[in-house]
Amino acid sequence: MNFKSLPQLLDYFKDENTCIEYYEQIRWNGTPVCPHCGSERTYKTNRGHKCANSECYKKFTVKVGTIFHGSKISLRIWFAAIFLATTHKKGISSVQLALDLGITQKTAWFVLHRIREMLKDKAPQVLGKDKMVEVDEAYIGGREKNKHINKRRSLEDKNFTNEGKPYTPKKTVVGIIERNGNVVLKHVPNSELRNMGAFIARHVPQGSTIYSDEAPVYNHLKKYYTHESVKHALNIYVDGQVHTNTIENFWSVLKRGLYGIYHQVSEKHLERYLDEFAARFNTRSLSSQERFEKFLVDSESTLSYKKLISTVY
């Protein structure tokens, strides 16, 4: 198998059995493991497998306990969706995915969110061990001047719109990126030190070299890191090795994807979209097939529709 395009992928995965055999090899290395109790003592049934452990004795398929859990969509369609969502640099909308795969927009929206669940980092990345690191924040949301008049802030009260509803500011995203390396992202309530500092400390070991702009929130970095800042307010964007151009380039891709492909992202789901963009960026050096297989290895996570639309998050 060596596919570089969607037609080649679909040519290989001609039927459901081929998909199941392939995914069983990816997930279990050919030896089925019960997802309920972890036992390797299983036997094959007409519809999948059954645990031979007398305390469990449950039936299961390779989909149980994964992003495909409970889905009636064929793995062939799922594999095509994963390929499209992870190879489009700026993402693919649920409307376009529905048209491409012949499913409903509601189904495509749920499929994409399950894929984002798969793309989520399972363990915190440590950046800056042997590379220079840049840190910056971005603000997601429309410009005030472009909003409808009834959604703009009142001139009398800056905390409310003209209709008296509480004003919702732009969403704050903090990002840390290695030069020629990976990126980690997080949606934070605001750009205060208590939010930014904890995130940086979690992902960058003390003593690393960090570059940022001149925002006051980064002043504390000198205590724990080799920190230098570039003076954007003075129209200085590069001073030797001191710049934030790497993270700025990433922000441009992120914003063009969010605004151009998805148009609008709710605060509730923003973190999932950040996982998607970070995962694509961090696997940019892999081939389409290598990326596809890597993400399938990390597919053991479930997401129900009830949880996805829940108001508690």
Score class of each variant (00 low, 15 high):
Ser212Gly: 07
Thr244Gln: 05
Ile82Asp: 03
Tyr273Gly: 01
Lys145Ser: 09
Tyr313Gly: 04
Ser154Lys: 03
Arg27Trp: 10
Asp213Ile: 01
Val135Gly: 10
Ala108Phe: 05
Ser74Glu: 14
Ser191Ala: 14
Glu248Thr: 00
Met196Arg: 02
Thr246Met: 03
Asp298Ser: 12
His49Met: 14
Asn46Trp: 08
Thr45Ala: 00
Leu270Arg: 01
Ser299Gln: 11
Leu97Lys: 03
Ser71Phe: 01
Pro205Val: 11
Gln96Ser: 12
Asn182Asp: 14
Ile177Asp: 00
Asn162Pro: 04
Gly30Met: 09
Phe199His: 07
Gln8Glu: 14
Ala215Arg: 08
Tyr313Ala: 09
Val62Ala: 00
Leu193Trp: 12
His232Thr: 08
Leu185Gln: 01
Phe79His: 01
Val111Ile: 15
Ile20Met: 04
His49Asn: 07
Gly207Gln: 07
Ile140Trp: 00
Ser208Gly: 04
Phe79Arg: 02
Lys147Val: 01
Lys106Tyr: 02
Val253Trp: 12
Gln96Met: 14
Ile177Lys: 15
Asn2Ala: 11
Glu117Lys: 09
Glu24Leu: 11
His232Asp: 06
Tyr57Ala: 14
Lys58Arg: 12
Phe60Glu: 00
Asp130Lys: 09
Cys37Asp: 08
Arg27Asp: 08
Trp251Ile: 01
Trp109Met: 10
Leu97Val: 09
Val111Thr: 11
Phe3Cys: 04
Glu156Ser: 12
Glu144Pro: 03
Ile149Trp: 15
Arg47Asp: 08
Glu290Asn: 14
Leu221Lys: 03
Ile309Tyr: 09
Lys106His: 10
Ile140Thr: 00
Gln105Asn: 13
Leu221Ile: 07
Val183Asp: 03
Arg272Lys: 11
His113Thr: 05
Ala81Asn: 06
Glu21Pro: 02
Ala98Gly: 15
Thr107Tyr: 03
Thr168Asp: 06
Glu144Ala: 09
Thr66Ile: 07
Cys19Phe: 03
Val64Leu: 10
Ile73Ala: 13
Ser154Tyr: 06
Pro124Asn: 14
Thr302Leu: 06
Ser288Leu: 08
Phe250Arg: 05
His69Val: 13
Glu178Pro: 06
Lys120Gln: 13
Lys223Val: 10
Tyr313Lys: 09
Leu308Asp: 11
Glu16Tyr: 11
Glu228Ile: 00
Leu6Cys: 07
Tyr139Ser: 07
Leu296Cys: 08
His187Ala: 12
Arg114Phe: 05
Ile26Glu: 04
Trp28Tyr: 11
Lys255Leu: 06
His263Tyr: 09
Ala215Pro: 06
Ala198Asn: 12
Val312Glu: 09
Glu248Asp: 12
His269Met: 12
Lys59Pro: 04
Lys122Ala: 12
His69Cys: 14
Ala198Val: 11
Leu119Gly: 00
Tyr225Lys: 04
Asn29Tyr: 02
Glu267Cys: 00
Leu101Lys: 07
Val135Glu: 04
Val64Ser: 02
Asn29Ser: 12
Tyr218Cys: 05
Gly260Ile: 04
Asp130Asn: 13
Thr104Lys: 04
His227Gln: 08
His187Glu: 06
Leu97Tyr: 03
Ile26Arg: 06
Arg256Trp: 11
Ser74Phe: 05
Leu193Pro: 01
Glu134Lys: 01
Arg194Glu: 13
Arg256Tyr: 08
Ala80Gly: 10
Met1Gly: 10
Glu40Gly: 05
Lys165Asn: 15
Ser212Asp: 07
Ala201Cys: 09
Leu274Trp: 04
Pro7Trp: 12
Met196Ile: 15
Ser5Arg: 10
Glu40His: 13
Ser208Glu: 03
Ala201Gln: 13
Asn2Asp: 14
Asn190Lys: 09
Ser287Trp: 04
